[in-house]
């Protein structure tokens, strides 16, 4: 399936641009399917394409030198990624991986920038999108740096480990995130960190507290 003006008009980058101005733009786009688990962009690579998800979901993440992964955002159909590299140094600050079988389309910086110069609405939209992404990243930095999310997650686990009249309390990672005042991605990392340190074990639909004393310490409850 080829990219059409109608496809592009639905993207936030091109919102408000008259269709006749978008003529000629679809030919500058490439499209490719990726299979589940395939890497689209690797952190640190020179990568000057602005990518859009056509179908499926893409995971954007950073990996530490020890191999620990922090999900930054999940990109859904119609959304873009690699904006930072395209409008900046050209080097991607994160990796992108297909979470399922997906279809991606993209435009190279050298084709996009001249189009933006002639269409100020596209430049304005791009600024708004990059600004939103920066705000989201700042929130993530705040959560990871200043909030003791692992401590809060530890407290949530302890407070919900006692069985009630209807059996054990059940919590999703979204619910834990809402309780801890953070993002689900940060809770996921905290749970993995607790598991790596032997404090809990993540089993199928069960979180088993293996070291209550240490968990209590982390929660600041002793």
């Amino acid at each position: 399936m080829s990219i059409t003006i109608e496809n592009l008009a639905k993207l936030r980058h091109f919102a408000g641009v008259e269709n006749d101005r978008l003529a000629g733009l679809p030919q500058l786009f490439n499209q490719k399917p990726f299979v589940k688990g395939q890497t689209i962009v690797s952190e640190g690579d020179k990568q000057e394409n602005l990518y859009f998800v056509n179908a499926g979901v893409v995971k954007i993440f950073k990996t530490s030198s020890e191999g620990k992964e922090q999900i930054i955002i999940i990109v859904r159909p119609g959304e873009s990624f690699n904006d930072i590299a395209v409008f900046g140094s050209g080097y991607s600050p994160y990796s992108a991986q297909a979470l399922g079988n997906i279809v991606i389309y993209w435009i190279h910086k050298n084709d996009l920038l001249p189009f933006m110069e002639k269409n100020w609405k596209v430049a304005r939209n791009a600024l708004a999108i990059v600004s939103e992404q920066e705000r989201m990243l700042l929130t993530l930095i705040e959560d990871l740096s200043f909030k003791n999310v692992t401590g809060r997650v530890a407290k949530i686990l302890l407070q919900n480990s006692e069985p009630g009249p209807d059996g054990f309390q059940k919590l999703t990672q979204y619910e834990m995130a809402a309780m801890a005042g953070t993002a689900r991605e940060v809770v996921g990392r905290s749970l993995k960190s607790l598991e790596e340190n032997g404090v809990i074990s993540l089993e199928r639909h069960r979180i088993v507290i293996k070291n209550k004393e240490l968990l209590t310490q982390l929660a600041g409850l002793n």
Partner: peptide, 27 residues
Amino acid sequence: CGWCTDCELVCATGALQCPFEIVMSEG
């Protein structure tokens, strides 16, 4: 199903939930 929770992660409407039971180790 290994409870990877990816379905919950990508669901934008909250239609899918993968709740965890929180239990103390018996050991």
